[in-house]
Nucleic acid binder design. Sequence first.
DNA 1: CCTACCGATCGGTAGG
DNA 2: CCTACCGATCGGTAGG
Lengths: 210, 210
Amino acid sequence: MNALDRINKEALNLFAERGYYGTSLSMIAKAVGIRKSSIYAHYNSKDELFISVIKYVANIYKAETEQFFSKLKEQNQPVEHQLFQVFCWYMQLWIDKKDVTKLWRRVSVFPPEHLENDIKSISAETVAQSFHNELADIFRQGVENGELRNAPSGNLVNLFQILIDGILTARLLKGNEDTAELLHDGWHHFWSGIKGTDKRQTNTGEIINV
Amino acid sequence: MNALDRINKEALNLFAERGYYGTSLSMIAKAVGIRKSSIYAHYNSKDELFISVIKYVANIYKAETEQFFSKLKEQNQPVEHQLFQVFCWYMQLWIDKKDVTKLWRRVSVFPPEHLENDIKSISAETVAQSFHNELADIFRQGVENGELRNAPSGNLVNLFQILIDGILTARLLKGNEDTAELLHDGWHHFWSGIKGTDKRQTNTGEIINV
DNA sequence: CCTACCGATCGGTAGG
DNA sequence: CCTACCGATCGGTAGG
C-alpha cells in the first residue's frame, strides 16, 4: 500500500470517527507514520483532502449500489423478496463498511458549513439519485402486479427510507448488537403496511395506477 | 439577559450548528460581545461549558416531555389519537426548538470521544428513559383494549422510534418544508401496521397479553 | 518524502 | 468583566 492510499485510509477513518474539525492533518500524518507536511505532496489543502475522501466514499456507495441492484434484477423474485434483500444488503453494508457509512452519514447530516454545497453536489450525483431510482422501479413493479397496495412509487420509496434511517439511527445510538430484534420487527411492520390487501388480486391488472 | 445567559445561548447555537470541535471559545465570546477570557469567570474549561449546555438541553427535553404527557393523560383519548398527538408534538418540537433538538441529535449520534460517557449518562437520566416509559404506557393500554395488535409494548415503542428517527433524518437532510407529505404518509403507514386487525375485538378483553 | 519555519488561533492563566 | 500573556497546535509554505 503506497503512501497516498495510506493517507486516504487513515483520513477516512479519522474523519468518520472525529469529524472534519476534530481531525487535524498532524493526526492523519501520525497515523500514517509520516510528517504533516508530506501530505501536501498529495493535496494542496485540508479541504482538498477532505473532499477527495468524501468523493471516494460516495463512489464506493455508488458502486456497491449498482452492483447489488444489477444482481438483484437478474433473479426476478417477487417484490417482497426483492425489498427484503435490499433491506438486508443495506444493513449489512453498515457492518461491513462501517467507516464509509458512518462518514457518509456524518457529512450528510452535519456537514462543515463551508463545504455543505460541495457535499450536496457529490451526494446528488452519486448516492441519492441512483438508490432512489432503483427502489422506485421495484415499488412500481409491486404496485402494478398487485403485490403492493396502490400508491405512488416515490411515496413508497420514502417510507422505505424512513425505515432504513430510523434503524440506522438506533444502530448509531445503541450499536449493531442491540438492534437485531429491531431489524426483524422493523421489516415486518414495514411490509405489513405496504403489501396489497388482497393477494387474489395479483396479476389481474385491475389496480394498475398512475 | 445577563452575561451568563447570553454565553449559554450563543454556545448552544454554535455547538448545534458547528459541533464541539468546530466551535471555539473566541467565537462564542465574539457572538456574546465579550472577551474570551471572560467566559472563565463562569466556567473553568470548554468541556465544562459544553457539558453545562448539554445538561440544559437535556432538561428542556425532559421538561417538555413531562409537560406534554401529563396534559395528554388528562384527556383520556383513544390510543390512536394519543399516539398521533405524540407524533405531532414531537415533530413540532423540532421546529419550535430547532437548536435544542439539533444539538441533542448531534451529540447523541456523534459525540466528542472524550465526553461520550458523560453524554450517555445525561441522556439516560433525563431524555431517553422518560420518553420510552411514557410511550410504553400508551402502547400497553392499546394492546389491552384491542386497539392495537398484540405485541410487547417495548417493541411497539421501538417501531415508533424508527418512524420518528427516520423522519427527522429526512428533515435534517432536506429541511422541514420538503417533508410535509412524508409526515402524513409516515404516520398512516405506521398506524396501519400496528392497529388491531379487527375493530370488533375492542374491549372484549380476549387479546389481553403478557 | 524530509527539516525548518510561518502567522494565526487554540484553550487556558495571571492579575486587576 | 478587562488587558496581557502562556505554550501548544493549527493549516500551510520554502526549499531540498
